[in-house]
Design a binder for these strands. Structure first.
Lengths: 333, 333
DNA sequence: GTCGGGCTTGTAAACGATTACAAGAACGAT
DNA sequence: ATCGTTCTTGTAATCGTTTACAAGCCCGAC
């Protein structure tokens, strides 16, 4: 005995399938009709098949979230925010890991044409012409969490990392630090480029020269540790920095471990500032001063944009910038 | 001009829809036929509609992962492992947050009857008769990551936390600690009960009495801090513990912050052991000795079980137990 | 009494794929 | 030459819904 279909319910209730469908979808019906249908539904334990429904109405009530790595804490915060908004609106969330390759991202965007989801929220780690093109031609609405050219004509939500950098530098300068170094992630990534430029500009605004700039191979704890010697080692002929800004919290924590190993005290000898203001920032020791780039808010806003665009695909694309703030903790004086 | 359908391709290629479908699904076809279809597909940019396909074949090639909170690091590790296995097998992953309420979990399991996914991987935080019943009656294969009664007749993958506890206690005892306390999470949760019992048994094995047991309101950093006084405060008439085992890493890190605030040194004054061996364990300071309960492996094995059951629903349910190991770091002597 | 308008309900045609079945072609064996 | 077998291809049914359209009914207005 297999699952009852709408036809079974109709038979059991002695009405037509159309009537069953109408009652189930809340369209006007007489009291008696409604009751007969409800009873039959309850008796048979009928549950409508969403596959069939999707085919007919052309919507799946699913949205895809694509990030480079679901395990990365930055994305986790975003994902949680997205999931909240999306599920409150009655959608399910499909998460996909794109990996670091652009071609995989492009394949994913193209694949949306299969229609397994009603929209795509993508946070590309690297962007090129192909990707922009595929996004513009995508069969379903797309929102980008990150930085793509305005001419792409797509809704975007991004952080203002230059401004965030400035907050960090202002704070350090106010505390008397002048020998400021920067620990970046890979410079060929979207956040990597943005932060490198932001750092340079922020120092310029204070008429300072960077003491040292290092580039970790990845935005991870391990890469942060590995890159530390480049900032502290013999190569730094000008002497040690008295403050290091890191492109994310994981790098910062990695660096702090190496500082401790080198016998340097945070913040007395070297101040450390992270970015993302993840939960890690208040869990590490000493607690980490970090630039809050609003990842939760970015996730929330992006999800809202996507829902709005699904509602009305003709609205003009919006480009939202979420403002940063600085969470001051113990890793700076 | 809307998306081309299989009928459009058939027309363009001058063949029947059946032939197009066959070529696309790799069924035998003459060289010429294959080529004509391929060309038409390429010309039109045809992409098959997965909604229609799902309806017809009765499968969506999606799997649902249900956890209490997608943001929780334990689940993140599991999710990453699950996503890897699942996507390698050609499935998409739908993630759902159930929240802490059992009724929501039950509703979710029942809702699987809608057929939007081919299987469910659920990690219930609390279990009752209703939930077990709904799982047993579920329309699609279910695998439980966690502990449900054997009579539920469902594939399960779980950690061996009693054994993990024993590893922790053995280690502490070997290092000369005898005044061992336990910081648990909520005792009415599945992991909470298991770990409480594991702790009691492990101490008994060494003929030791627990110095103190506290129960945090949640498995979080904040709850860990809040619960610290119960272990360190005046209430502990018997004096301070010389070691604390915590039910997860977040609690441990929360506790360590309070220890530092109270002027106690880890591990000299108090040794601390966490559980889960999450990335946090090597990122915090001092690095945290932690019981590895194999969350990644649990995720992987659970996903594999689910795929296997989808393949063959008649196989006898398996109950896999993943063995723990102890990662020794600096928070213990 | 007849007509028209508004409700309710049913019939049947989609949605876009897969696939059972049948028809036709090709080919070798007798 | 005929038959049977195998292989390729096409026709049409099917999956389980939603929904356009039409039919039937009731009711009040003329």
């Amino acid at each position: 005995m297999s699952r009852p279909t709408i036809a079974g319910v109709a038979r059991a209730a002695g009405v037509s399938v159309a009537s069953v469908s109408r009652v189930l979808n809340g369209l006007p019906a007489t009291e008696e009709m409604a009751e007969r249908v409800q009873r039959a539904v309850a008796d048979l334990g009928y549950v409508p098949d969403s596959r069939a429904r999707s085919l007919k109405v052309g919507r799946t009530f699913q949205l895809t979230l694509a990030v480079a790595d679901v395990g990365n804490p930055v994305y986790v915060t975003m994902m949680r925010a997205v999931e909240e908004v999306v599920s409150a609106a009655g959608y399910r969330l499909v998460v996909t890991t794109t990996g670091p390759e652009i071609v995989d991202e492009v394949a994913l965007v193209r694949g949306m044409a299969r229609g397994y989801a009603d929209g795509l929220l993508i946070s590309p780690i690297r962007v090129d012409e192909d990707l922009v093109k595929s996004i513009r031609e995508c069969e379903v609405p797309v929102v980008v969490a990150g930085n793509v050219p305005a001419k792409a004509g797509v809704d975007t939500v991004r952080a203002n990392s230059p401004k965030g950098m400035l907050l960090a530098v202002n704070h350090l300068v106010a505390k008397g630090r002048r020998r400021i170094a920067f620990l970046n992630g890979p410079a060929d990534t979207v956040p990597g480029t943005a932060r490198a430029k932001g750092f340079a500009d922020a120092l310029k605004a204070h008429k300072l020269q960077p003491i040292a700039v290092a580039e970790a191979t990845d935005f991870t704890f391990t890469a942060g540790r590995a890159a530390a010697p480049a900032l502290l080692g013999v190569k730094v002929s000008a002497g040690l920095p008295d403050a290091v800004i890191c492109a994310n919290d994981l790098l910062a924590v990695g660096l702090m471990h190496e500082l401790a190993a080198a016998g340097l005290e945070v913040p007395a000898d070297v101040a450390v500032v992270g970015m993302d203001d993840s939960e890690l920032a208040e869990q590490c020791f000493p607690t980490l001063t970090s630039v809050n780039l609003g990842s939760a808010e970015r996730g929330r806003r992006a999800a809202e944009l996507l829902l709005a665009r699904i509602e009305d695909n003709d609205r003009t694309p919006r480009r939202i910038v979420v403002q940063p703030s600085l969470s001051i903790r113990r890793s700076t004086p």
